[in-house]
Amino acid sequence: MVTSGRAWFTPGIPGIYVVLLCDVLSGLGHDPAPLLRRLGTRREQLLDPEFRLPLERADLAAEAALALVGEAGLGFRYARAMRITLHGPVGLLALSSATIDDGLEAARRYLGLRAPFLVVEREPLGDGRQALCLRTDFGPGPVRSFVIEAMVIGFVHMLEQLMEAPPEGAEVHFQGPPPAHGEALRKAVSVPVRYDQPRDALILSAGLLAARPRLADPQSEALAREQCELEFRRWRANQEGPLPERVRAALRDGEGAPPDLAEMAERLAVSARTLKRHLQQAGLTYRELQDEVRYRRARKLLSDGTLSISEVAYALGYNDVANFSRAFKRWSGRTPGAYRGGGPGQAG
């Protein structure tokens, strides 16, 4: 179990969010015990306020949950179960802010403390409205759809809690066509939901942004902001801290084939020799870290099914499909074709 204050800020998500996922699964009639066994953790560990689940294991949790639920719409159901108080000081700051605009900006600024895999950007739309645009480093596929849906609807639910009423002047926009559970989602959400849009975003009117949350309180806001800033400085210090973790973060946030050692060293403003030495001191090699991200991206691309196996290989920087197949079998124990097909077999 993670217990030190420093470890609290290692990359990952608070365990309480996985507890909530387990509770949502239970509410849908599924036993969450196999998911916890797959993660190698217990509910008691996840409830520890200092526990952080690494992003790779959080990814596994989402995959396992989606496999159980199928087309039932796990994302919006998860968002509906979320309470703003579960976000700790970040939620308190949003609740006590002077305006909805201030509360949303606080949530956006400190999002890395709770969801380091997500980026939220504000985009003015020219008619007084603004868009909170969401993007994530998850590749195309069910996990990305789950994360985006949960976060966008989660912002709607946060607005409902700030206003203690349906947030008039808000709309939800999703890229792509409606999913199988699209009609159920529309009925469950208190604002218009539109698909086939240019962005995944929450659209907000000027009037809604200027509205005052029901629990606005300057003293509570100041205290919560002080707590958030303290956490944020520690989190940023850790992001800029141990070189191996900075390498992992840079690889995770990139796209396409991972850069080579010299390119990564240049990106991190250190020499290749220094980078190699720090990795050796941590018992790692750059090749191992490259393989971590290649394996994660390979699983996403193979599961998505849009690209052929040879195209997946080239996207990951392999010039030879056979080399990619051997590497993937070393990582997973299965060929790419067997992984895509869900059983034993050879890559096609």
Rank of each mutant, 00 (worst) to 15 (best):
P178Q: 08
A206Y: 14
G254I: 01
L243C: 13
R277V: 10
C228L: 12
H278T: 07
R277C: 02
D291G: 11
R297Y: 04
R294N: 04
H181S: 14
R252N: 07
D253Q: 15
Y295F: 11
L202G: 02
P244I: 07
A262V: 12
A188V: 12
Q281I: 08
R246D: 06
Q197K: 14
L215F: 13
A250N: 08
L209E: 05
R194K: 12
Q280D: 11
R246L: 05
R194S: 12
M264K: 00
H278D: 09
Q239G: 11
G176I: 10
A206E: 15
R212C: 04
L243V: 15
L268K: 02
R236C: 15
G283T: 11
V270L: 08
R248E: 15
R234V: 03
E226K: 15
P192D: 13
L204R: 08
Q239R: 13
L279H: 05
P218R: 07
L268V: 07
R277N: 10
S271E: 14
D253H: 14
E221D: 04
T274R: 14
R225A: 10
G241V: 03
A210C: 10
A206P: 15
D196A: 12
E171F: 01
K187D: 14
V293P: 01
G207H: 08
G182P: 02
H173N: 11
D196V: 00
A210E: 15
Q281L: 14
A250D: 09
G182R: 01
A165M: 06
L223P: 00
R294T: 07
D253Y: 06
G182C: 03
A257K: 05
T285E: 13
A237N: 15
V293N: 01
A216V: 08
E168H: 09
R277P: 01
Y286H: 06
G182N: 03
R212T: 13
A170F: 06
L185T: 09
L230H: 15
Q227P: 00
E288Y: 12
K187A: 15
K276I: 00
P218E: 04
Q239L: 11
A262M: 06
T285P: 10
G169F: 06
V270C: 13
A210D: 13
R236Y: 04
G283L: 11
R233T: 12
E231M: 14
E221A: 14
E245Y: 03
E263R: 10
R296M: 06
R212Y: 00
L284N: 05
R296Y: 05
R252A: 11
V270Q: 09
P166C: 09
G182D: 02
Q290E: 15
L243Y: 10
Y295A: 14
A216S: 13
W235H: 15
D196H: 08
G169M: 06
E266G: 12
P218Q: 08
M264C: 13
S205M: 03
Q197L: 05
A272N: 08
Q219Y: 06
A282S: 14
V270K: 05
E231T: 00
R233G: 03
Q290H: 08
T285L: 09
L185R: 10
L251H: 05
D291W: 04
V191A: 10
E292C: 06
H181A: 13
A216Q: 10
E245P: 00
K300L: 11
R246W: 04
L202K: 03
Q175I: 12
L223F: 10
R273W: 05
F232V: 02
V193A: 08
A272L: 07
A201M: 12
E266L: 13
L301P: 00
V191C: 11
E266C: 09
R267P: 00
